[in-house]
Amino acid sequence: MKNQFKLTVALAVVIASLAFTVSKTKTPASNKKSGWISLFDGKTLNGWHGYNKTTPVKNWDIEDGALVCLGAAKDASGGDIVTDKKFANFELKWEWKVSKGSNSGVMYHVQEDAKYHAPYETGPEYQVIDDVNFPQKLEEWQQAGADYAMHVANSNKKLKPVGEWNTSSIIFNNGHVEHWLNGKKIVEFEAWTDDWNKKRTESKWKDYPDYGKAKTGEIALQDHGDKAFYRHIMIREL
């Protein structure tokens, strides 16, 4: 009887331990409770489509759980993909890496319409690029993590070497914008202010009247003719 009691107690301890472990590893439930949803399932292009297109996407593929731009586009238009869903205020996070000398980007509040040729005409961009090996000289506003052609990254920026995964995030909340790279905030600004409008009209965006004006839109990943890798793409609405 005594041995049986000890065995019963031991089993109870094991069961309790397993229950505690399981409760700690319920990631999907935890993510759902906190509002995070996945934009990429690691296996398919479900939830994405070609910008301004209804035909199947052929220039992006899945490799080892990563969404890979094959670099099929000849320029910065024609190969971008966008989310099926639109977002207004959000926190977006993802991991990325690029091949040597490659260029890509993540855009938001993108508008689809026949009058636009590419997402960058309307959507602000978090620049994704190989700062070190890019074949041309880069201005600061063209470098990784920058709000492309608008706001440069600060001294907190620490970029991983080519071939290693970086972690990035964009926070957009009623015009307040933050860019994060590898755990550090590298860009912060307010959209639609006088200063923002001044930057906009004095940069390349002066030729794109609808750039950055939308308050909701799609998330876009850019095919700039180079190979780029994205994974663990998550978003929560604010």
Rank of each mutant, 00 (worst) to 15 (best):
6 K>M: 09
205 W>K: 03
71 G>F: 03
215 K>V: 02
46 N>M: 10
67 L>T: 02
108 Y>I: 00
226 D>L: 01
125 E>Q: 04
68 V>R: 07
133 N>R: 07
145 G>D: 01
48 W>L: 09
139 E>I: 00
69 C>V: 06
53 K>E: 05
27 T>D: 07
202 E>C: 00
38 S>K: 09
8 T>L: 12
228 A>N: 05
99 S>K: 14
82 V>I: 08
216 T>M: 13
36 W>N: 04
228 A>P: 06
72 A>R: 10
151 H>T: 08
17 S>V: 10
195 D>S: 14
217 G>D: 03
128 V>D: 09
234 M>H: 06
32 K>N: 05
57 V>G: 12
220 A>P: 05
57 V>N: 12
106 V>Q: 05
103 N>R: 07
189 F>Y: 12
193 T>A: 06
226 D>M: 03
148 Y>K: 07
40 F>S: 08
102 S>G: 09
106 V>G: 12
181 L>S: 10
79 G>S: 08
234 M>A: 06
34 S>L: 07
161 P>Q: 14
203 S>P: 00
91 E>V: 00
100 K>H: 04
139 E>H: 11
129 I>L: 15
68 V>D: 04
42 G>N: 11
16 A>Q: 07
16 A>D: 11
104 S>H: 08
71 G>W: 05
37 I>G: 04
96 W>D: 15
132 V>D: 15
118 A>M: 13
13 V>S: 05
53 K>N: 09
79 G>F: 02
149 A>I: 01
203 S>G: 02
114 A>M: 09
70 L>H: 12
130 D>R: 14
126 Y>C: 04
129 I>Q: 14
195 D>C: 06
193 T>M: 02
238 L>V: 01
118 A>R: 13
37 I>E: 13
179 H>Y: 03
36 W>T: 01
29 A>P: 05
19 A>Y: 13
23 S>R: 07
99 S>H: 06
